[in-house]
Design a protein around this nucleic acid. Structure first.
Lengths: 179, 179
DNA sequence: CCGATCATGTAACGGGTTACATGATTTC
DNA sequence: GAAATCATGTAACCCGTTACATGATCGG
């Protein structure tokens, strides 16, 4: 999830303006420290505009610091939905428990999908998770055989528990939708 | 964990040369696709050398593609150990289950720490984890009260389970060392 | 009125990716 | 001997961070 997707997500919830999006994004996802990252903020807004994914109220030379409301276009919504339905990032096979869990970032906006679309995404992710679990179990076996350092064995076991947790959670998520 | 740390870690296991480190790094942590990222590889090696963290066999104009063995210096080991003992990244308070789990990246090299050092690191991480769990539980309560979208409630509940799993695992890790 | 925060913006930098070039070594 | 892979390197680019500048607005 790039900041671009995060921004589109917030703007779909309600049209807003740069500063407010950034404040909310940081308070939701990050510790309080930096709060507003202007460099990223305004370069991303420029890009969204250039790609036709969002429109901004025109700036005014007389009032250079006035709020400029940003609205997502139809093309912006289409691109966002394409991202929601795309599981490329989640499908990465190796040692994914070291890394962030990209499925959550998409799931956070599943309200923009129809129930069948959401169920489809969850099923894909379930398949990915089962595949990862299988890989980790094989990795653990070969690591134990090779006599790998005990900390590394402990880590792969964490990975296995983590993947089991994800699978349970994904199943509950399916039940939630089906009811 | 930057590529710098990853590289120091591999080189401490055994001195090697650029191409081999990269191959191993990608096969351990990433999917097979790119395999060798020359841009990052050689710029990082240059930097390690410039900072006095590693030395390389001199290059030879006659044999420009000969292997150049890289060895970590004492300063390199010191910097690596400082990174192992530093829990800044892990201490971030918010929605950390969206993100990768930096503690694992350090734990992967805990064999370079003494048992008391490792126990200290694990205890710090346990405190961090308990704090995060508390934060997530409060967040969940307020989200339920506010009537937030059910997918987001589900996500924060995943975060809670995930943190509980981490706490259990950290406790087992302590027991492993203590015996 | 003064300081803090709001709100816009620019510029320099850093880590990492992608793409390319070149020559050596291995494999068929 | 041709093709694939090994092994070194450079250059352009992208996303995100840090730092700074400017003016408006709001609370004490």
């Amino acid at each position: 999830m790039g900041f671009k997707q995060m921004m589109l997500g917030y703007l779909l919830d309600s049209p807003s303006y740069g500063y407010a999006i950034m404040k909310k994004a940081y308070s939701d996802f990050y510790p309080a420290d930096p709060e507003v990252n202007e460099g990223l903020l305004y370069s991303t807004l420029k890009k969204l505009e250039a790609e036709g994914l969002a429109t901004r109220e025109p700036g005014d030379a007389d009032t250079p610091t006035a709020r400029r409301k940003v609205t997502v276009t139809r093309a912006g919504l289409d691109e966002f939905k394409a991202w929601l339905l795309n599981d490329e990032e989640s499908a990465q096979p190796k040692f994914d428990f070291f890394n962030r869990y990209p499925f959550l970032e998409r799931c956070n906006y599943f309200k923009y999908l129809t129930p069948p679309e959401a169920l489809g995404s969850i099923d894909q992710e379930l398949q990915n998770a089962k595949q990862r679990l299988e890989n980790y179990r094989l990795a653990e076996q070969s690591m134990v055989q090779k006599g790998v350092d005990r900390f590394r064995i402990a880590i792969i076991r964490y990975g296995i528990s983590n993947e089991e947790l994800r699978i349970d959670w994904l199943r509950e998520l399916k039940e939630m939708i089906e009811q």
